[in-house]
Nucleic acid binder design. Structure first.
Lengths: 168, 168
DNA sequence: GCTGCCTTGTAAGGCAACCTGACTTGACGA
DNA sequence: TCGTCAAGTCAGGTTGCCTTACAAGGCAGC
């Protein structure tokens, strides 16, 4: 009935990227909902790029773009948004008059803290629901994959690569 | 040093949706590359919606859109594309003159077979690299999540829900 | 201390992949 | 046979990116 010449995937099996997307979308939907409830309805998912990577002492646009894996222009647009919403501000870089340091405002720091908190709580809930051990293994495997496939997105790795000498 | 009022996530921890995205993108990039090498460079990732869900005996646009979780209009555009590229055709539905059945052409069937084959091979490679058992657990957990969070995208579930009576 | 090149960031415009709203056409029950 | 509802199409908008082109400031070599 079915011509399985080279097929090794069961019909009805969802390709892995699809499964990953479903999980990511479900998580993100719950995250957004809670973020909105916490009073940050004006933040969109893409703004996460900034909150995820910006350091406490500020970060240049170029570095931010590299970490996030997007162009400087795209990163600049996100920052423009967040400046308008008063989550971040551009401060002149004392070391280089071309550059500006992107820093979180008070409001931005609070949003960041709350956002990370929501993610943490969300993961705990999912871990309870689907099994703590399985969930930990999931995260571990995904982190391994990320380290191999997108090192720039992993703070520890990218900082080590960029700064080199920062002896912890 | 760090104000951990409510923070429970280690600083430096990538939020789970980000990790899932990285894995999905990496997989998809490898998939596209191999698909291109196989001579299907004109297929874009979104076209996958159609190949993934369309049944051998054809499927209406509305149902396709529901499975894929997109609007009829978007689905229609994808189908238009694939018709232009001769991967699918619209056949008048004998049961309803408003409707058309979306069917794969010969070329479309071959592309589907090859595409699924590439996914299967890809997963085998990743499983070898990251550990077969861990990988199986990953897939199992993700399937469980998908069944709960996006039942329409799971062929078995969505067909059961829609057709109800289709014995087997 | 000027010249040429390299970086930092911005401006402008384009594109893919979605969406909403407003239809047309045909099905179908009262 | 009429009103309502479902199938699909048309037009236009939004989001989140991208590329190309550029101005302004750093910086090495002469």
């Amino acid at each position: 009935m079915r011509d399985a010449t080279h097929t090794a995937i069961k019909p009805g099996t969802i390709p892995l990227p699809g499964l990953l997307d479903i999980a990511a979308e479900a998580l993100l939907a719950e995250f957004r909902e809670e973020l909105t409830e916490s009073g940050y309805a004006d933040l969109r998912p893409t703004h996460g790029c900034v909150f995820r990577f910006v350091r406490e002492d500020g970060m240049r646009l170029t570095e931010l773009a590299t970490c996030a894996g997007i162009t400087k222009q795209s990163a600049g647009e996100l920052v423009d948004d967040l400046v308008d919403l008063s989550y971040v501000e551009r401060i002149a870089d004392p070391d280089d008059r071309r550059a500006k340091l992107i820093c979180l405002t008070e409001r931005g720091q609070e949003a960041q803290r709350i956002g990370f908190g929501i993610f943490a709580a969300l993961e705990r809930r999912w871990a309870e629901r689907f099994g703590q051990e399985r969930f930990d293994q999931l995260r571990e495997l995904l982190e391994e994959i990320a380290a191999e496939k997108a090192p720039a997105a992993v703070p520890e790795l990218s900082q080590a690569a960029l700064a080199g000498t920062r002896g912890e």
